[in-house]
């Protein structure tokens, strides 16, 4: 059987036909909100995972008693580390909200057709939640200086 061209292939599976952009066939880069949310989801995901590894190790030190843990956790009170903590919060928040958008697209048929507006909703919710988080964590940062 002849392999269906990209735009037909998608249509055959019940989706809307993709635009014919021959030079972009064979890559996942198709621009727009889809590409940017995809890239950000990966970057934030990898960063949060790498932090998680370190965070499990430092929290595991609780099991070794107060002296060691208190010495190590003091690192988190350092102003530079507090800035990194703020960055972590911003990444976790984006990954969480964008993950909910991916699930909506996967499980609600109508959501897929509105994925651009949905990304707008993600950005809106992100700002609503990030601003208070920035305020409280920023206060902590200023205190630590």
């Amino acid at each position: 059987m002849r392999a269906a061209p990209l735009h037909e292939h998608n249509a055959l599976q019940g989706g809307r036909p993709l635009p014919l952009v021959p030079e972009k066939v064979g890559t996942v880069y198709r621009g727009g909100q889809g590409q940017w949310s995809w890239a950000l989801h990966r970057i934030t995901g990898v960063a949060v995972f790498l932090f998680l590894l370190a965070h499990i190790v430092d929290t595991a030190l609780v099991g070794f008693g107060p002296e060691l843990y208190n010495r190590v956790v003091h690192v988190y009170h350092n102003p530079i580390v507090r800035l990194m903590e703020i960055g972590l919060a911003m990444m976790v928040l984006f990954h969480a909200l964008n993950g909910l958008r991916i699930m909506a697209i996967d499980f609600i048929p109508k959501a897929a057709d509105r994925h651009k507006e949905l990304f707008g909703v993600v950005i809106g919710l992100y700002l609503i939640l990030a601003v208070p988080a920035l305020y409280f964590m920023g206060r902590g940062f200023v205190r630590s200086l």
């Binding site: 998608n10 599976q13 019940g14 989706g15 993709l18 890559t27 897929a112």
Partner: peptide, 12 residues
């Protein structure tokens, strides 16, 4: 190889 298996939207 890029095989579009997307049932609906193109972005997941």
């Amino acid at each position: 190889p890029y095989t579009p298996s997307r049932p609906r939207g193109a972005y997941s």
